[in-house]
Amino acid sequence: MNIFRLTGDLSHLAAIIILLLKIWKTRSCAGISGKSQLLFALVFTTRYLDLFTSFISLYNTSMKLIYVACSYATVYLIYMKFKATYDGNHDTFRVEFLVVPVGGLSFLVNHDFSPLEILWTFSIYLESVAILPQLFMISKTGEAETITTHYLFFLGLYRALYLINWIWRYYFEGFFDLIAVVAGVVQTILYCDFFYLYVTKVLKGKKLSLPA
């Protein structure tokens, strides 16, 4: 465990909590893509099945349980409790265009052709693109609430910090996971445009709105 990995995990946790609190405090999930949140719940579910088969550390187990619980809570708030505030008309990204190719790819390119490993690979590939419905929604409405941008910032920062973690681990531990690294690079690149807007607009106190 290095500092980049730890801050990456904490940044991921911060993103998840920010989103939950935003929905809970405002009693509304306006501007949030339920589809992205469903995909994240699927990501955590398929990745953390190893909770049943292997124990790494108390930290590892508790973080996994927290991520899974929070992602299900978020989905519950969007599709059940605050369903009336869910902006389904703008959440029109076709998720099958992500899930089907990602599913196929995880069968073709993986470290080991075993059920758990294929599901882990699926979750890594899916996570890298799971934010697309959310970004698509923002590009469709042309704006995002500031709190939503903080959520996206921490979510993007998490994968960027993981990239530094992987460089660190490569040099100091000889650890290298091509699948995670390639997917992590793709995932981070998807946030670059958003990072630019976040720094040039949101951090200067302006609302994130896109030119018409």
Partner: peptide
């Protein structure tokens, strides 16, 4: 070392 199950990252 190449990563494989069990994965130690989150």
């Amino acid at each position: 070392i190449v990563a494989k199950t069990p994965h130690d990252e989150l």
